[in-house]
């Protein structure tokens, strides 16, 4: 495995601006390497900063110190006009899903594909493939607001994967799922990772903690990320 592959963070520090102008530090000196081809799970108590870490890894937030490197490129240092198009290589599953409720299921999946310069036929094929993968093929034309919570979450996963991303960052992807669907999502993440994709999941779902598809486990507490099990060295 090339050391410059995957998604790495070095000395990552982040804090939300406080009310008195002081920063409320959430992450400090986070260093980790998420390898391609493996599923990494980040656990931690509610409010520990799992979502913030995923947003930092996905380029939605900029660290106040340290950097995020994707395939050895310092993406967190890039200005927005370079970071935004880079984000097309990232598939993000938001904790609150961030679907557009009045659009149909298929249209929600179309959203990440529109700016990529793809042909219509390629877009349609990708959408159909992903909808079938998350067992929503029959609901393609339904508006999102008619779906159940679990179906919406699977749609959010499909949307993250529809653009064939190099990095998948999933925030609580099994929160609204029954056991069968949770197991299927684990398997799906594992299958995606086996194609050489970096998969990072932030969750405190015990079903994921014990899943065999998870290769690397990390725990986030008190602003620090520590490897659980065999330690991973950053490149």
């Amino acid at each position: 495995m090339a050391l410059n592959a995957g998604l790495a963070c070095h000395g990552l520090r982040f804090g939300w601006p406080g009310e008195q102008g002081d920063d409320r530090i959430l992450l400090q000196a986070v260093t980790a390497w998420f390898q391609p081809g493996r599923v990494s799970l980040v656990t931690g108590a509610t409010g520990a900063g799992k979502s913030t870490l995923l947003h930092l890894l996905g380029g939605l937030l900029r660290p106040v110190a340290g950097e995020v490197r994707a395939e050895d490129q310092p993406v967190s240092r890039w200005p927005a006009r370079h970071r935004d198009p880079w984000r097309r290589r990232v598939g993000m599953v938001f904790q609150h899903l961030a679907l557009v409720p009045d659009l149909s299921v298929a249209e929600n999946l179309l959203l990440p594909l529109v700016p990529r310069g793809m042909k219509w036929s390629a877009m349609q094929a990708a959408i159909t493939r992903q909808l079938e993968a998350v067992e929503l093929g029959q609901l393609a034309a339904k508006p999102v607001y008619t779906l159940s919570g679990g179906q919406r979450q699977r749609l959010a996963i499909a949307r993250a994967l529809v653009g064939a991303p190099r990095f998948v960052l999933a925030d609580e992807p099994t929160a609204f799922q029954d056991d069968r669907q949770a197991a299927r999502i684990c398997a799906q993440m594992g299958a995606v990772a086996r194609t050489g994709v970096v998969v990072v999941i932030g969750s405190h779902d015990p079903r994921l903690r014990n899943a065999s598809e998870v290769d690397d486990r990390w725990h986030l507490a008190a602003g620090r990320l520590t490897a659980v099990g065999p330690p991973q060295a950053a490149p």
Partner: peptide, 17 residues
């Protein structure tokens, strides 16, 4: 100041865009 990640530089980057 390229590479800096402070709020002022982030604002400048967004401003430049």
């Amino acid at each position: 100041s390229p590479g800096a990640a402070d709020g002022a530089q982030l604002r400048r980057e967004r401003n430049w865009e």
